[in-house]
Write a protein that binds this DNA or RNA. Structure first.
Length: 113
DNA sequence: TGGGTGACCATAG
DNA sequence: ACTATGGCCACCC
């Protein structure tokens, strides 16, 4: 059992790691899955610390509600997020995912299965 | 201890 | 349709 002070962070990281390749989700969806009480801001804040994790956290698969790559600027390089997404056959145009709704992966729905 | 901050979201004007 | 604002709550100094 992982006993860390940042349980919330671990929860977020865990969910993000569960995102299948070629799929994306939103901060709000993760917050909703962890509990409506959790604000989406905390998810974004957790992602900010994701780089500190040794295990690879596919943060590029997490975008905002509009499908925009708002967090791209926080990657090693601004173009890295887009590059990683395109590598997973996800089209990105103007920092936004094309057919975002089509790639959307909601943990509160998918994980229930 | 307290206050500021944040890779967001929803609502109101 | 677009812009502005409040709320949300864990983390850091």
């Amino acid at each position: 059992m992982i006993n860390n002070n940042s349980d919330f962070f671990n929860q977020v990281f865990q969910v993000v790691r569960l995102i299948p390749q070629g799929r994306v989700t939103s901060y709000g969806a993760i917050a909703n899955y962890l509990g409506a009480k959790s604000s989406a801001r905390l998810v974004g804040y957790a992602m900010n610390a994701s780089h500190s994790q040794q295990e690879h956290v596919p943060a590029h698969r997490v975008v905002n509600r509009n499908g925009q790559l708002t967090g791209k600027h926080h990657f090693a390089n601004p173009h890295l997020m887009k590059d990683l997404l395109e590598k997973e056959d996800i089209a990105v145009d103007k920092d936004a995912i094309v057919n975002f709704k089509n790639y959307f992966w909601d943990p509160s729905i998918e994980l229930v299965l």
